[in-house]
């Protein structure tokens, strides 16, 4: 039974998800019963009433009011039950408790950014405490995206120009995958993130450690910190470090090279060009690439940009 359940649905990691699963199984098992009933009826009919000769005479049965009312009213009642039950569960799934911990979510092509009350911010990793409701306040920078965590059974479109909300309360520490489920272009299927659920104390510690992410940790060399920032900001979604062609130009050997721009001119990739490309990506686009990169103005400070430049320099 357990195996069958796991075959059809991902693990239920919240109380709401379990509530969801009960309804899911009720609908699907009753549907299965109906389907089997219909299949059995069809098989029985085609065996029993198979044409014996071309002169078969069949009875004239035009209608049967009692029967027709029965098979209209019973499904109606069942669907009304489903409707009520489904709506109740829906309210539970979408109405966040008032004491929820709030995280701001920004979606853009093709990454998720999470901002916490303490000032910490992460990309493609959502850190949350276990056992406490978390409310996501979501907005998109460009097109419509959708935030979907199968383990929590939550999904909500993320729309430009307005806020939408979702909430969950993870029970145990662990990791769950996040998908973007509203088609958003080339890297739609790479727009994944992780929800990392910590023990509450661990989460408090994590927040403390990461709130100051804007300044360089003392124990890191600038290039190493740059590498960390690149990871946090999911730059590698579009820029490879090993020469692979992705949405943006690779960083391997780019520093110091001459690049042909879309308008025909050339540019030497130096500190100024990289800085400009981070803050104002569409100013000078390398030939053959699209205007897809969002600006990181206000998201990376000078010190961080310097660290990233140092890191890019190491990619020979």
């Amino acid at each position: 039974m357990e195996a069958l359940r796991n075959f059809f649905l991902p693990p239920a990691k919240t109380a709401v998800a379990e509530q969801y699963d009960t309804l899911f199984w009720f609908v699907h098992i009753s549907s299965l019963v109906v389907t089997i009933g219909i299949v059995v009826a069809i098989i029985y009919f085609i065996i029993k009433y198979r044409r014996k000769s071309e002169n078969d005479v069949t009875p004239v049965i035009t209608h049967n009011n009692k029967l027709e009312v029965t098979w209209s009213v019973i499904p109606l009642i069942i669907t009304l039950v489903l409707f009520g039950w489904g709506f109740q569960t829906y309210i539970d799934m979408t109405k966040a408790p008032t004491d929820a911990y709030e995280v701001n979510v920004t979606a853009q092509k093709w990454l998720w950014r999470f901002q916490y009350k303490s000032g910490a911010s992460t990309t493609n990793e959502l850190h949350v405490p276990a056992g406490r409701p978390v409310k996501l306040i979501m907005q998109s920078q460009d097109v419509i995206h959708s935030f979907f965590v199968p383990d929590f059974r939550i999904k909500q479109d993320v729309i430009p120009g307005r806020y939408t909300e979702a909430w969950f309360q993870a029970r145990e520490p662990g990791e769950s995958i996040v998908f973007c489920t509203e088609y958003c272009g080339t890297d739609h299927s790479n727009m994944l993130a992780k929800v990392i659920v910590h023990e509450p104390e661990e989460f408090a510690q994590w927040l403390e450690d990461n709130s100051g992410a804007a300044t360089k940790p003392t124990d890191l060399a600038p290039a190493d910190w740059g590498e960390q920032l690149v990871q946090q900001n999911a730059c590698a979604t579009c820029h490879s470090t090993d020469g692979t062609e992705l949405t943006g130009p690779t960083w391997q050997g780019t520093f110091g090279s001459e690049e042909q721009l879309a308008d025909g001119s050339t540019v030497t990739v130096d500190e100024n060009y990289i800085r400009e490309s981070i803050l104002n990506p569409n100013a000078k686009i390398v030939q053959g690439y699209g205007q897809v990169m969002p600006s990181y103005q206000g998201q990376l400070n000078d010190e961080q940009i310097n660290a990233i430049i140092e890191y890019i320099k190491t990619l020979k």
Binding site: L23, V27, L82, K155, T181, E182
Partner: peptide
Amino acid sequence: IALATIAIDIHLHDT
């Protein structure tokens, strides 16, 4: 019918 049930659709929508 399963998808018409709002709650069930939340998880299954766009899958």
